[in-house]
């Protein structure tokens, strides 16, 4: 007995609503049932193979013992195995020897970018381009020397150069005269340079002294670069750098990275990296 509302003669549950709405017990489509069975079988299989069910203190481990952290560690090991070719050579070599080796220094330049970003870029900029008050590392002007050994030394021990404040020894006119001479690139043109003892650190001609971290005053690079360079120079003369006596003194401290902060190999890498930024000597 076929009728239009039940073309395939499905069995009736006997439930009827509103006189004519019947509930038939039609089977779901075959493909749907197939998908359903495949799905729960996959769930069971997943639970057997992989860690899945939480227990009170632990969880099911799965037959393969797979964990994501283990996979991560394996991948890390694979990458370290690739790097080992170079990394294994680094501890036994000095920074200068690494720099001299074309292949090794190339490896360091490519790989130490992260190290530089983590430790140096905050002050010196991502490419060593410096920041206001923080020296540029990509140029060829070095307060404490630009050789690979000196750079390494700066990273290990940090630097803390000092220039006394001269505000109490100079009249405003004198300070202006000195600032003008320094800004012109010829500090020894004024007798004040000798009289006030500037030459003791900056040298007779004002070309600086890397032993003390005293900058070259005759070149085009300014330790405290500013839009109004002359004003900046005058400020430095009056208040000095790192002078504990003057509360307005310019702060200039490179922290110490040796000892507990970075290991020897990382410091060597950074020294080579900085040397290769463009101005190493």
């Amino acid at each position: 007995m076929s009728d239009k509302s039940n073309p395939y003669d499905a069995p009736d549950t006997g439930h009827v609503w509103d006189e004519s709405l019947r509930e038939l017990t039609n089977q779901p489509p075959k493909w749907w049932m197939l998908g359903f069975h495949v799905s729960w079988i996959l769930v069971l299989a997943y639970g057997l193979i992989y860690p899945m069910w939480p227990m009170v203190n632990t969880h099911t481990k799965g037959m393969t013992g797979w964990t994501s952290i283990k996979e991560y560690k394996e991948d890390l090991q694979a990458i370290e195995a690739k790097r080992a070719k170079y990394e294994d050579q680094l501890p036994g070599k000095s920074a200068a020897a690494i720099l001299a080796d074309d292949e090794l220094s190339n490896y360091v330049v490519r790989s130490a970018k992260v190290l530089f970003g983590d430790n140096c870029a905050a002050c010196h900029g991502t490419g060593g381009q410096g920041n206001p008050g923080f020296p540029v590392l990509a140029d060829d002007d070095w307060l404490f020397g630009g050789s690979i050994d000196k750079i390494e030394e700066s990273i290990i021990n940090g630097r803390n150069g000092m220039m006394p404040a001269h505000g109490n020894q100079l009249s405003d006119t004198e300070a202006n005269e000195l600032a003008d001479a320094v800004a012109a690139g010829n500090p020894s043109s004024t007798p004040l340079f000798q009289q006030k003892g500037c030459f003791a650190c900056h040298g007779m001609e004002g070309t600086g002294n890397p032993m003390l971290g005293a900058p070259d005053l005759t070149d085009s690079i300014w330790r405290f670069a500013a839009k109004d360079q002359r004003e900046s120079i005058k400020y430095t003369i009056v208040h000095g750098v790192n002078d504990p006596q003057d509360p307005q003194t310019r702060p200039a401290e490179m922290p110490k990275f040796g000892g507990t902060k970075l290991n020897d190999t990382d410091i060597k890498k950074l020294a080579v990296y900085v040397h290769k930024l463009g101005g190493g000597q």
Binding site: T126, V136, A138, S220, G278
Partner: peptide, 18 residues
Amino acid sequence: HERSPLFVQLSDGSIQNR
């Protein structure tokens, strides 16, 4: 061309690019 920094001024006043 190195982007950061695009150029660097050297102590003799010349400009360097990496």
